[in-house]
Design a protein around this nucleic acid. Structure first.
Length: 418
DNA sequence: GTTAGGG
DNA sequence: CCCTAAC
């Protein structure tokens, strides 16, 4: 079963499972007992990396893979405290990863890094979110030098060039370029560092499988919920204990993994049967649950005293250990007041009926014109994925000029090239 | 199929 | 928004 056949929500859930699982496995290897307070997988992984960075390249890779997988949907978020898009995060991770690989891989790695960065901008354009595209672009490609109004024009030109480079012949790269191709390229590079027998990668398959088993039983939606994953992690731990999966130094072999998986399915099936009666009450992902900090306990033997010492140790280590590893900070994204979805007005397929333009729609249109240029209406139509025809766009541009709405747009987004 | 322009 | 010429 290929992960790429999942819809985004499922894939996101799978990736969460992979991360959880990876963290669990790594945890088992590096920590004998105890527990730690962490608010996200990111923190946990950062902590693990801070312990013995050179020993856990796979952790980077897995972390990276998850983000690359989810990157197509740049709106996915792994942690509450960060507003980075997924692929921006991937770029950061990759950058750190590259500092730890052999010289001979550096060039190829740099190429991939550039591809990831471009893709980060690209996915936003493809989704008609040019605002975010510009923000991402300036964060990833422009040094901190602050430019004024004329900087905006340059960004538009740069993005246009970037889109062009994806498909030099035809300008509608947005439709031709496949995310899967990019993903394949990324994975090809990472193969250099991946041993396919590693449990990390087997986790990818298992998690996908586990996810389908569970989702087919409980109707998908509950899966993106954070509480669900926590339960899963606990179950994983219990199963590992029951089955005597070795805690340290030797990885579980393939057979152990398979049986673990089967066992897990059974446990989940039982659990689902129990909760089947009130599924509907709990399926909707509840934001309240998410907001509460996440507490992982991998061992019940220790209590809060050990907890504290460990979590403070984490913080100390984290701050001690080289900033280049833990410094993920990037200027925050300027969030416009909830304009997340460009409010696609119910399009009227009925011919002859008036279909007024919403202001947000006009804004998007204008920004598409900034990037594709005046007159390239069909390309703009494709990029915007709007139901309006190229002729309608042309007419709208004419009225924008005629009624002087152009002044507002020019002021807000910068001038267009002629 | 696409764009410019008159209506 | 529609229509048509021109490409």
């Amino acid at each position: 079963m290929s992960v790429s056949t999942f819809d985004n929500e499922k894939r996101h859930a799978v990736n969460q499972l992979i991360l959880d699982y990876a963290v669990f496995v790594v945890w088992n290897d590096y920590v004998e007992q105890g527990s730690v307070d962490c608010h996200s997988n990111r923190e946990l992984i950062q902590w693990i990396i801070s312990q013995e960075p050179e020993k856990v390249p796979q952790t980077y890779i897995l972390y990276l893979l998850c983000r690359l997988n989810d990157g197509e949907n740049y709106l996915n978020k792994y942690s509450e405290e960060s507003t980075l898009t997924v692929l921006e995060d991937a770029a950061e991770i990759l950058e750190i990863f590259l500092t730890n690989v052999k010289q001979s891989f550096q060039k190829e790695g740099k190429d991939l890094l550039r591809a990831v960065k471009e893709e980060a901008v690209y996915v936003c354009c493809r989704d008609d979110n040019f605002d975010t595209a510009k923000e991402v672009y300036s964060r990833l490609f422009l040094s901190n030098s602050k430019e004024g109004e004329n900087g905006k024009e340059n960004i538009n030109k740069d993005i246009q060039k970037l889109l062009k480079s994806k498909s030099p012949v035809h300008f509608n790269a947005v439709n031709l370029h496949k995310y899967e191709d990019f993903l394949t390229k990324a994975k090809r590079f990472l193969q250099h560092f991946i041993n396919l027998e590693e449990p990390y990668l087997m986790a990818e398959k298992d998690a996908a499988h586990m996810c389908t088993c569970r989702t087919s039983r409980t109707s998908v939606t509950a899966d993106s919920g954070y509480g669900d994953r926590q339960v899963n992690l606990g179950t994983l731990m219990k199963v590992c204990e029951e089955m005597g999966v070795p805690k340290r130094k030797s990885w579980p072999n393939f057979m152990e993994h398979r049986s673990l998986k089967e066992h897990l399915q059974k446990v989940n099936a039982d659990k689902n049967r129990e909760t089947n009666s009130n599924i509907n009450a709990n399926t909707a992902s509840s934001p309240e649950k998410r907001s509460s900090p996440r507490k992982r306990k991998f061992s019940d033997s220790e209590d809060t005293a050990a907890d504290k010492s460990l979590s403070t140790r984490v913080q100390e280590k984290a701050s001690l250990n080289s900033k280049k590893i833990l410094d993920f900070e990037i200027p925050k994204m300027a969030t416009r007041g909830d304009q997340s979805s460009p409010a696609k007005n119910p399009l009227s397929p009925v011919t002859g009926k008036r279909n007024p333009w919403l202001e947000a729609e006009v804004d998007d249109f204008y920004q598409a014109v900034l990037i594709f240029g005046v007159g390239n209406w069909s390309q703009i139509r494709d990029a915007m994925k709007t139901a309006r025809t190229n002729v309608q766009l042309k007419d709208k541009w004419r009225t924008i000029l005629k009624c002087g709405e152009i002044n507002r747009l020019k002021k807000q987004f910068g001038d267009v090239r002629k």
